[in-house]
Design a protein around this nucleic acid. Sequence first.
DNA 1: GTTGCCGGGCA
DNA 2: TGCCCGGCAAC
Length: 413
Amino acid sequence: MASALSRRLGKRSLLGALVHTPNPAGDGMLIPGLIQAFRSHPGKGKSSYTVSFEDGRFKECGEDSIIGPGFQSLSSFSLIAGQEVFLTVNGREEVGLVETHNKERNEVQVHVAGLGVRTLRRIEELRLMESRRSPRLQELEREHTRAGPPEHSVGGTSSGIDVPTRKSEGVDEIMAAMVLTSLSCSPSTNSTWTGRYTLTSSSITVAHPPSPPNKLSLHCPSTPPAVLLSLVWGISNMVMGFRLCGRHHYVKVASLDRRKAEADPSDGEEDFYYTEVQETSEDLPEYSSVPRSLSPPGFFPQNPPGVSPPLPHHEEVSDVPVSAFLSQSAPSCLWQVSADHPYKVEISQDPPVQPHPRPPSYPPCPSPTLIPNPPNSKVRGEAKKCRKVYGLENRSQWCTACRWKKACQRFHD
DNA sequence: GTTGCCGGGCA
DNA sequence: TGCCCGGCAAC
Ligand SMILES: [Zn+2]
């Protein structure tokens, strides 16, 4: 493989799913949003999700206040007048506005302006999202759900990491979560990579609540800890900015083979690769060094430039983006960061303060570092391997790989 | 020379 | 898949 750099990591999840939640403004309207982050509360048996709204706000929602595939059904909610809903009228999908909702009798009066009619429906017949499929199929599907148990538990008390077995209409673009806790580095053989980062874990751990100093655990032997600067995500990738050895690094982590992961959900994992996309030198205030164009336009209009989409840590709407805190230590809870956004990642020429693109002198950085190795260079691991440890005469004590003259399994570098 | 291990062969 | 080894590059 060209980049020689792929790692399996991450759990597929609901991240990126289009859902509806009660408007944080409190007007009772159910408004659309995207699942941005997921958090499990170990021991509590409940999960909460960070939902972003079209106006750029964020809210952390309990799973029982979210409507959508893999979450609650609309039936358990009260609709207020003015709520936009979709319904099937004479075999065609129409959009209408709720006028009244009688919960006891399960009657919702909907005004379908397009047809100039008012109709009385049960709430089960209403949808918050436009269907892409034919209403006929919708009806059939509804018959099915009525007849049998749901495919997966979406009950309000369900706990743990629920991975949907089905994706939502219009949101079949659910992308796997991008998650990682730590990176280690070793020589690279690819020119676009300025280092080889090996994911050593499969989750991104973000302390809760995030608090400075933001530290990213880089499992790079004999390097100082890296300081996380930013997490910015795109359609199928995430750019992580961190400072190490006095330099700023931007590593793009992207989904490698999504289709494969889709086809094999039992696997529960997905391939990602990551690439260093930018490196600048120090002297920048933190959070000011994120490539600006990385901020998702559109969906996060209020993001201050240079700040990643937040991982809110409050129950209420969070207007202030919060940077992530990555820690090697066991976190109290786990965030998974969505890697799915409707925009393209472009790496901007983020102008560092200092005008020279490559100053002749870098601050000293211990080795191994994230500095690139010459392409195609083959580096021998530091660690002593079975052969050396046990000696030729004790070949029987070697690990199998060593016995077979393969890469040692017992003593990793 | 020694060590680590890739790539290939064989059963 | 398990096993072995030629050969090469890093030390
Ligand atoms: Zn070994």
